[in-house]
Write a protein that binds this DNA or RNA. Structure first.
Lengths: 193, 193
DNA sequence: TTAGACTGTTGACATTTGTCAACATTTTAT
DNA sequence: ATAAAATGTTGACAAATGTCAACAGTCTAA
């Protein structure tokens, strides 16, 4: 079982370690799922019933505009969470697709379970707050970079911040994440830094 | 006292109303502050010791790049929170400025108080989670819009999503928030929708 | 009240980035 | 094994946006 990965992960965010008993409770609220490369986890119009903790693999979230163009909004690898929060908490049909960029092993949780765990285990609540904090900070940096910098600088920032991602996602997906075309990314990469 | 505004605001986010006793505890952790238009709440290099709940007024957070250009990262009005979370929780010098775009009345809280309230009052913890959720969702939409759409569409989205902001912030600040120049915004506005 | 800052618009031109097409390699599915 | 799909690069050109300068109206502080 790869469950222990979630346990270490939770501990990394908690101020005090999560006890084995608490972890048993947490574990009981998750289910396992595997996805093959290119399979959908979520499709536009669906309600996001689960959030996915990624044990292994890589995923992306993207939006398809009126002209049918894909825009990658998020990239995820091991120890990240995939899903559409807006749909998950508001029970609204999602405007996003989430799919697997590699074969994936996931652990899924429903919103009811999340709420139950929050009220039952203060450490879980605390964990979620820390997670949101971290997420908020990363997003803030991303927005700053997006509105302030040229394509080249954005790519360099991304590459130095998430070097692994360069190995794991194809360039056209990274380009889309950065809000530029694959051609522009290709050209930007061939410039010296 | 305008404290009751915070109380209603908290209630709007809680699943059960915040009792008067709980609110007394919460209130005791806040201090009041006023800012005149154009005064700083936070300057680059400082540690963000307080987060500000805005009772009245309007503020912005911005970043100054190597070439001395300002890039507005966030806009805030009544019932929003202003500050730099990264600096606040990590005690790192901030890379942002936060200043008042109108005369402001604020209620300030430190990170220690926030942590204390979280552990003492589950309802406060819950409140923060909801707030982060809402913030996360809004930010997700903003990123989607920024990487997917032209200047005109971004402005129209912004205008329909935050019509008040058009009245309260000058155009060059909105332009910067949208990641475009004031000249481009001026031109985009003169096109018919 | 007055000079200076702040705000907003417009024109001419430069730069960045996108679009479309062609092509080569690699990976994937049958 | 083979065809199709996915990935990545390049060129020619188009479109979007930025830059800089000039200008005018409004607000603000001494």
């Amino acid at each position: 079982m790869l469950m222990h990965q979630l346990h270490s992960y939770l501990n990394a965010y908690a101020s005090n370690p999560v006890t084995d008993e608490d972890f048993e409770i947490i574990k009981s609220h998750f289910t396992n799922k595997t996805l093959r490369k290119r399979q959908y986890f979520l499709e536009e119009g669906e309600i996001c019933k689960h959030f996915a903790y990624i044990i292994k693999g890589a995923m992306r979230k993207y939006h398809v505009d009126d002209q049918g163009k894909e825009h990658v909004v998020d990239l995820y690898i091991e120890n990240w969470w995939a899903g559409d929060l807006e749909s998950f908490v508001m029970l609204k049909p999602s405007i996003y697709y989430v799919d697997a960029c590699e074969d994936c092993e996931l652990m899924l949780i429903t919103n009811e379970s999340k709420i139950k765990l929050c009220s039952q285990l203060p450490s879980f609540n605390q964990f979620l707050l820390k997670l949101d904090e971290r997420n908020h900070i990363a997003t803030q940096r991303r927005i700053t970079s997006t509105i302030s910098s040229s394509a080249k600088v954005r790519y360099d920032d991304f590459a130095s911040c998430y070097p692994e991602f360069l190995q794991r996602f194809p360039q056209h997906i990274i380009a889309s994440y950065l809000g530029i075309t694959k051609e522009t990314l290709s050209r930007v990469r061939s410039q010296v830094s």
